[in-house]
Write a protein that binds this DNA or RNA. Structure first.
Lengths: 341, 341
DNA sequence: GTGAAAGCGCTAACAG
DNA sequence: CTGTTAGCGCTTTCAC
């Protein structure tokens, strides 16, 4: 805390007015005549006065700050989310309190408490687990504004997010329409309760009357490049005739691509690769990635609109609302119709 | 601000003790007998009490929060820095206030003010401009703990950072030792006052008695993948016989690599590519990038040690100290000795 | 037009 | 052992 900052009192003493007058003048009250205001402003300037927001927060009961909790900012989409949230929030006069849960539910809980103790006006959270949301539901029940960046339609908590189920559905359908029949997917199949992608995958298969085959789903160790490489290695080892694969993220897709390049598997001719999230590195990969676009701008804007409206709501919070943004596909070089041979 | 949270007063009324006793009990003062403490804790629990940090901050004159200002979190190194800073800070009981300057000096200034108004105990800043640091110097002069993540040895402000000059020197020297004579560099040559890399580049040439040639330096539009691609395109168009290139970031190097792959330039045989920062996407590129390592863990730890020691220093701040961490090279597939042909 | 007083939720100093 | 008082820096209400 900047050691000895000037206070209203200091400028009051310097100018001979009372603390009250100074406060009013500095906040531009019409009740203060111009000359007085001028003197006060000048003294404030000289003393390098900056209002103490913590004192202000205490009386106003609002901190103009919003907490953002992400699992891991290293994931490029979350990086972009953090950037977008901070930018939008600062435009609206809010400060961003930032924390990472490292996908650890215990830490997530701790950070939520910490934000609450600091009286953040609201929170945006990308939860570790898409299903176990009791602690967050409870927060909301106590009228604390929270909105999730991941959506469970019946979680009872506000959320705005990409519709991953629809994204996976579209991507798989696209592949199917282009003649692929053996479409693999890298997915943890719900270990973390995040079943959206695999659900969409199955729906697309069903809609096209293609049988689901367990052998085509491989559980990666994570969502990063290395995990994608390893998953592709595992898939190749199974030798189950896959001609296309849906990856959980662009990073994983990049790893898969790398495996293919290094093992003489041509992309997209021998193996079509679909990424998720449409990131910069996917777009500019040696073979540009087809991907499911994550419309970060739209999502963060909606999410922020929502928390702020919750913050400004009188009395009890309104009913929870979940908004799913339907993603578009971005088709580039890593996918192509199944070739005849 | 969570609408109606329990206060010490509420639990005082509920238990019949005074606010003071409750406060002491909850903070584990030895002066309070176990039975009293038990009753109080129980009541606190029931009321779902959480201490109001803003009130606490007001009296204690410390917020246990530190501001982090980055230019642009989208740059993978800065992403990693943000992650590392948040993690380390939370381990030490500090909250991270986060802001982005978007490389805009005006915004940077504004964010610094905002943090100061909120009485962040200190700040970590990655400034837009490595030379124009007056506003920050001034802050420090008023005893505000700041440490920069970019170093100007004679800025008069604490800093801990990677020694980019040494990094560039090492990378260029490595190339030179491996027979390269026409080493290009993508660098803005100091438009933003960030001359470290080009300085190191020139020093290495001088040390090896290789003449500096303007034609080998191309100014990129930025540090991202696309800029790297364009810079490589520009370099190729000049046709000045470059056999190696130093890129300002791994992202730019990835762009350069992409250009080469798409135009039949073999990497590293026809063109050796050196990146900077050693990022995940560089490591796992189709042709793994040689790079100058940015030891984020070490740097953030030192920087945080420093701000915290400044925060805890009594009276005036001690003399500014700048710590430069010398980077190591990571040699992978994108560079090789100049081939004889 | 301007000032005095009270209070936000908490801690610290001092009594008892 | 526990309670009372004062005060952190600000805003708000109400007098003058």
């Amino acid at each position: 805390m900047g050691k000895s900052a000037a206070r209203l009192k200091d400028i009051a003493e310097k100018t001979g007015f009372s603390v009250n007058t100074v406060s009013l003048a500095l906040r531009g009250s019409p009740r203060i005549p111009d000359e007085t205001r001028r003197q006060i402003s000048e003294a404030a300037e000289q003393l390098n006065y900056l209002p103490n927001q913590v004192a202000k927060s205490l009386v106003l009961k609002e901190t103009k700050s919003i907490g953002l909790i992400l699992t891991d900012i290293t994931n490029p989409v979350l990086t972009a989310v953090a950037q977008a949230v901070e930018l939008e929030l600062s435009k609206r006069g809010y400060l961003t309190l930032f924390a990472t849960s490292n996908s650890n539910p215990e830490l997530e809980r701790k950070m939520i408490e910490s934000f609450r103790a600091r009286r953040a006006d609201g929170m945006l959270v990308f939860p570790c687990n898409h299903r176990k949301l009791d602690h967050i539901r409870q927060l909301r029940a106590r009228n604390y504004p929270v909105v999730l960046l991941v959506g469970d339609p019946d979680a009872g908590v506000d959320a705005v997010c990409m519709d991953e189920r629809a994204g996976a559905f579209k991507a798989v359908s696209h592949l199917l329409e282009n003649g692929h029949r053996r479409v693999a997917i890298f997915d943890g199949s719900g270990q973390e309760g995040n079943r959206e992608k695999i659900d969409g995958y199955k729906m697309a298969l069903a809609a096209a009357d293609v049988a689901f085959d367990d052998a085509l789903v491989v559980a990666p160790n994570g969502h990063d490049v290395r995990s994608g490489y390893q998953a592709m290695e595992a898939l190749a080892a199974r030798d189950v005739g896959a001609t296309a694969v849906i990856c959980p993220t662009d990073s994983a897709a990049l790893g898969a691509l790398r495996y293919c390049v290094r093992h003489g598997i041509r992309v997209p001719q021998d193996m079509a690769i679909f990424g998720f999230d449409n990131t910069e590195f996917g777009e500019h990969a040696v073979t540009a990635l087809s991907s499911v676009n994550y419309d970060i701008g739209a999502i963060t804007k909606l999410a922020i609109d929502r928390v702020i409206s919750l913050i400004n709501s009188e009395g009890d919070l309104p009913q929870a609302e979940v908004t799913q943004v339907e993603p578009d596909l971005v088709i580039r070089e890593s996918t192509a119709p199944l070739s005849a041979d």
